[in-house]
Design a protein around this nucleic acid. Structure first.
Lengths: 246, 246
DNA sequence: CTTGTTAAATTGCACAGTACAACTAAAATT
DNA sequence: AATTTTAGTTGTACTGTGCAATTTAACAAG
């Protein structure tokens, strides 16, 4: 089947295989922190009766386009940029979901990524196709569990993964614009985790992990000015040797 | 495109879509500990010139069969059972790899799982199709980096993920047959991590985590008999509050 | 039966990172 | 000038680990 013996460049044209293929999609769970809440970006499904889940909210995503997408990750980055305009977010693969019945149109498998972006960097593009796009409080969306397809399950998994990694990594630093103060960063940790943390221990952990560099003082946004910080390396989070207590 | 408006059961037949679809495959990284080494199961690619990478070693896996596979995970479990006869291993999703050029036959995406199984439970089935199947020392295979497709990359990622999770979970307990002694379990940790651990700290960590239950004493396999243990819950590993030191 | 060897399991102590709580410091508000 | 608010520090206790020495239970040799 499908003769091709060299291990070189892919063929410009792909022969139709002898067996049926699942659909391949990519979805992106885009998180940010907005008004003291962890938020996720959702898009409304078109209202046409020919589409599955018309009018329902869903994670942004869609079919892989074999003509323009070269990898799954660039496909995810493309879909993210289309909705938010953000070019280089923190982007990590979450996993994949595939089954015969997750899409009424037939066997489908989706590759899911999750992205962390600072709220200030976003311009929500109610694009040419007039698709509705909006931010939602994560807790409420997970509670309602009313998204299209299996997206409620996927979102719940993404939130679990985010929360567990926040226990021992610097991931929340990707959720706020730079420069930020340590109290601001701590607030983001607390919003994501849903519990308060000790100030003193938080500071020593962040500073000894040596992933922040001092910027200028941040004045005016609270009573006393706070030291502003930036990430030394925006490409990956730092891993701490322990989790937070309690 | 693809008219279907109800959100009910999938159609028995899937219409051919208007656009080309990537291939969808599932691969499984199967780990065990054999003769004091972390090993991975590989299969040899058929020698037919019509197949990609003929004669090369590869991870077990293959196309999703939309007629018999209902989910990606059951597909992975099926492929694992076919090669090893193991019915209920520890099975976790590793991630997915997809691009236009990872398979010479065209755009393809693979969903990768990794499994941990105790060596004693295995009967390698050199099955009806006479496929060659064998265990290889992980360090040597990663070093050689000579697997078919992008499987060397995938294996390296699986080993990284396993090592990092072993630092703070009870995963190695899934790599040895029950009952096992604490020194045996510690040996597995050391084999996977590639460094020695402190005996005293190891014992207190394992016992306070409360995921083991005592079995009968294991006699004869060393000078002094050791307490034998079993897992209280084989469905998921325990997460420790810290990583190992050094 | 005694002695030496090996590996299992325990003990004691120092150390690191955190939890908890009280305190000082700098700016805004009154 | 006094009060409030938030940033940041200090000190003490506790927990889990790292390290090293010790005890315990079997086996083997003389």
């Amino acid at each position: 089947m499908l003769a091709k013996k060299t291990v070189a460049r892919p063929p410009a044209k792909q022969r139709t295989p002898a067996f049926r293929l699942p659909f391949t999609t990519v979805d992106v769970v885009i998180f940010t922190v907005l008004e003291e809440a962890l938020c996720v970006l959702l898009v409304r499904r078109p209202n046409a009766d020919s589409e599955p889940y018309p009018g329902k909210w869903a994670l942004p995503g869609g079919f892989v386009n074999v003509d323009i997408d070269t990898t799954l990750e660039t496909c995810a980055a493309r879909k993210l940029a289309e909705k938010t305009g953000v070019a280089s977010p923190y982007l990590e693969q979450l996993g994949s979901w595939g089954s015969v019945d997750r899409d009424p149109r037939g066997w489908s498998a989706t590759h899911v990524y999750f992205a962390l972006i600072p709220a200030k960097h976003i311009r929500i593009t109610k694009g040419a196709n007039a698709t509705e796009v909006a931010w939602f409080d994560v807790n409420e969306v997970v509670e309602a569990a009313d998204l299209a397809f299996d997206h409620s399950t996927i979102l719940a998994t993404a939130v679990d993964r985010l929360r567990s990694k926040v226990e021992y990594t610097s991931l929340p630093a990707f959720l706020i614009p730079e420069p930020f103060s340590l109290p601001q960063l701590q607030r983001v940790y607390e919003i994501v985790l849903g519990r308060s943390l000790d100030k003193s221990g938080f500071r020593t952990r962040m500073l000894t992990a040596d992933f922040l560099e001092e910027d200028s003082y941040l004045e005016g946004l609270s009573n006393r000015p706070a030291m502003g910080y930036r990430l030394k390396d925006r490409s990956a989070p730092v891993v701490f040797p322990r989790t937070f207590g309690r």
